[in-house]
C-alpha cells in the first residue's frame, strides 16, 4: 500500500449524500449516543452497567442474535440456489426469476407481515396443509412463535441475500467451470472448489445485509410474535413509545448499533479479503 494517500476530487461527488446522512442520521445518532452516556448531564457508564447487569437484557440480546442468525441462515439456504439459478439462466427465464425476486420488494413490510399473520394462524393455510398431509396431528398456530417470526422475516429479507450473491456469481467466468470439468472435477467438486469459494464475497455481503436488517427489524416481530418476545429493536421502540424511558431506549439502541455495525464491518473486511483473492 502506498504511504501517501491523496484525497480524490471525485470523492466530492459523494458530498450531497454525506451531508444528507450527517444531518438526517448522524446528528440524531450523536444525540442518542450522548443520552446513553449522560446521566443528569454528567458523563457516566451507569446506564450500560445497569443494562448489562440485568438478566432480562441478556435474554433480549439472545433473542436478537438468535433470530437474526436463524433468519440469515434461512435466507442463505433459500437464496444461494436461487442466485445460482438466476446466474445460470438466460433470457425470459432469467427475467421471470428477477421479477419474482424484485417485485415483492414493492409490497410494504406491514402488508407482508399481516399476510403472514393470516398464513401462520391456527386455521391458516400452513396449518391446513400440514394436517392435510398428515405431518401434524391437529391444527397448530405458527403465529406468535419464533418459527413463524423467522419464516416471515426470511420472506421479507431473502432478496437482499439473493441479489449480492447473484451479482458476484454472474461475474464468474463460465470457462472456470468448464476448465475444472476438463481437468476431471465432478459437478459436486466443481461447486465446492470453484463456484462456492469465488462467490464468498457475495455471500458475506448478503449475510451482512440480512443480519443487520433482521437484528433491527421492528414491525415484523411486533406483528408476528408480539410483546412477550423482545428484541433490542422492539425494546428500544417500547422504551421510547410506551415506557417513556429514554435512558433505556438510547442504551439498547446503542447496543443494537454496536452489534450490527460489528457484523457489517467484520463482513466487509472479510469480503475485502476474500475479494482480494478473487
Amino acid at each position: 500500500m502506498s504511504a501517501a494517500r491523496r484525497l480524490d476530487p471525485v470523492l466530492l461527488l459523494a458530498l450531497p449524500a454525506v451531508l444528507y446522512i450527517a444531518v438526517i442520521y448522524g446528528v440524531p445518532l450523536l444525540v442518542l449516543l450522548g443520552r446513553s452516556l449522560l446521566v443528569g448531564g454528567v458523563p457516566s457508564l451507569a446506564p450500560f452497567i445497569s443494562f448489562f447487569s440485568d438478566g432480562f437484557s441478556w435474554i433480549v440480546i439472545g433473542n436478537t442474535v438468535r433470530i437474526s442468525v436463524l433468519v440469515t441462515l434461512l435466507c442463505l439456504v433459500i437464496g444461494y440456489p436461487t442466485a445460482l439459478a438466476l446466474a445460470r439462466t438466460r433470457g425470459a427465464m432469467q427475467a421471470l426469476i428477477l421479477v419474482a425476486i424484485i417485485l415483492p420488494l414493492s409490497v410494504g413490510v406491514v402488508v407482508k407481515a399481516f399476510a403472514w399473520q393470516i398464513v401462520l394462524r391456527r386455521d391458516g393455510i400452513v396449518s391446513q396443509f400440514m394436517t392435510g398431509i398428515g405431518l401434524w396431528d391437529e391444527p397448530q398456530r405458527l403465529l406468535f412463535t419464533e418459527a413463524g417470526l423467522v419464516i416471515g422475516a426470511a420472506n421479507v429479507f431473502v432478496p437482499f441475500m439473493i441479489l449480492p450473491i447473484y451479482s458476484v456469481l454472474k461475474l464468474i467466468d463460465p470457462r472456470l467451470g468448464e476448465a475444472a470439468a476438463t481437468l476431471g472435477a465432478s459437478p459436486f467438486y466443481r461447486f465446492f472448489k470453484v463456484a462456492l469459494p469465488l462467490s464468498l464475497p457475495g455471500i458475506v455481503t448478503g449475510i451482512a445485509f440480512v443480519f443487520s436488517m433482521a437484528a433491527s427489524m421492528y414491525v415484523i416481530p411486533s406483528l408476528l410474535i408480539g410483546d412477550r418476545f423482545q428484541t433490542l429493536a422492539t425494546l428500544t421502540g417500547r422504551s421510547f413509545l410506551f415506557m417513556r424511558n429514554e435512558q433505556l431506549g438510547s442504551t439498547t439502541a446503542v447496543v443494537l448499533l454496536v452489534l450490527t455495525v460489528a457484523v457489517v464491518v467484520a463482513s466487509a473486511s472479510l469480503s475485502k479479503r476474500l475479494g482480494g483473492a478473487s
Partner: peptide, 19 residues
Amino acid sequence: PPHKRDVSVVFQNYALFPH
C-alpha cells in the same frame, strides 16, 4: 461428461482459478 473423458483444454483466456 467432460470430467470422465481424460481430455484437457487450454482455453483462449486461460481460465485459471483466480482464488
